[in-house]
Deep mutational scan, measured.
Amino acid sequence: MQIFVKTLTGKTITLEVEPSDTIENVKAKIQDKEGIPPDQQRSIFAGKQLEDGRTLSDYNIQKESTLHLVLR
Rank of each mutant, 00 (worst) to 15 (best):
L71I: 12
E18M: 14
T55A: 06
T55V: 05
N60Q: 09
F45G: 04
K29P: 01
L69D: 02
K48T: 12
Q40C: 14
L67N: 01
R72M: 14
L56G: 01
G10S: 02
R72Q: 11
F4P: 02
I30D: 01
Q41S: 09
E18V: 13
Q2A: 07
A28M: 14
T9C: 14
T9E: 12
R42V: 15
T7M: 15
D52K: 02
E51I: 09
P37F: 08
I13P: 00
I3E: 01
D21G: 01
E24M: 12
P38H: 12
E64G: 15
K27A: 07
P19V: 08
D32Y: 10
V26H: 00
Q41T: 13
G47L: 09
K11C: 06
M1G: 02
R72Y: 12
V17L: 05
V5R: 00
D21N: 06
D58H: 10
G35P: 05
L15Q: 00
E64V: 02
H68D: 08
Q2F: 13
D52V: 06
V17M: 03
T66C: 04
T14G: 05
N25S: 14
G35V: 03
Q62Y: 08
E16K: 09
Q49V: 15
Q62T: 14
A28K: 15
Q31D: 06
K6Y: 05
I36H: 08
G35Q: 06
P37C: 08
K48P: 04
N25Q: 14
K27Y: 10
D58T: 03
H68E: 12
Q31H: 14
K63M: 10
P38V: 15
P19D: 05
K11D: 08
P38L: 15
T22P: 01
L69G: 02
Q2V: 15
D21P: 01
P19A: 09
G47Q: 05
T14S: 09
L8P: 14
I61T: 01
N60C: 05
T14E: 07
I23F: 03
K27P: 00
I3L: 05
E64W: 14
G53P: 05
H68F: 14
G10M: 01
F4G: 02
E24H: 11
V17F: 04
V70K: 07
V26L: 12
Q62H: 11
K48I: 14
K48C: 11
E16M: 13
E16N: 11
Q49A: 12
P19N: 05
L56Y: 03
K63L: 05
T7F: 15
I30T: 02
A46F: 15
Q49H: 13
L67V: 09
M1A: 02
I3Q: 01
K27E: 03
K63S: 14
K33V: 13
E34I: 15
F45N: 05
K63I: 06
V70Y: 11
R42M: 15
E64K: 08
G53Q: 11
R42S: 13
F4T: 06
T55D: 02
E18W: 12
K27Q: 04
G53A: 10
S20R: 08
P37W: 13
V5G: 01
E51K: 07
K11F: 09
N60V: 03
K29E: 01
L71F: 08
T22M: 06
Y59T: 00
D58P: 00
I36T: 08
Q62F: 08
G47E: 08
L67W: 00
K27T: 05
I13M: 04
T7P: 02
E16R: 08
E64P: 00
V26Y: 04
N60A: 08
E51W: 04
M1P: 00
Q49R: 10
K48L: 13
S57F: 10
V5Q: 00
L67G: 01
V26Q: 00
T22G: 02
T55Q: 06
T22E: 01
S20C: 07
Q31L: 12
K11Q: 08
S43M: 15
I44N: 05
Y59F: 04
S65G: 06
S65T: 08
E24A: 15
R42H: 15
Q49I: 15
L15F: 03
N25V: 14
T22V: 04
I44G: 04
F45H: 08
A46V: 06
T7H: 04
Q2C: 09
R72F: 12
L69V: 08
G53C: 07
T66N: 03
E34P: 03
Q2P: 06
L56D: 02
I36W: 14
Q40A: 11
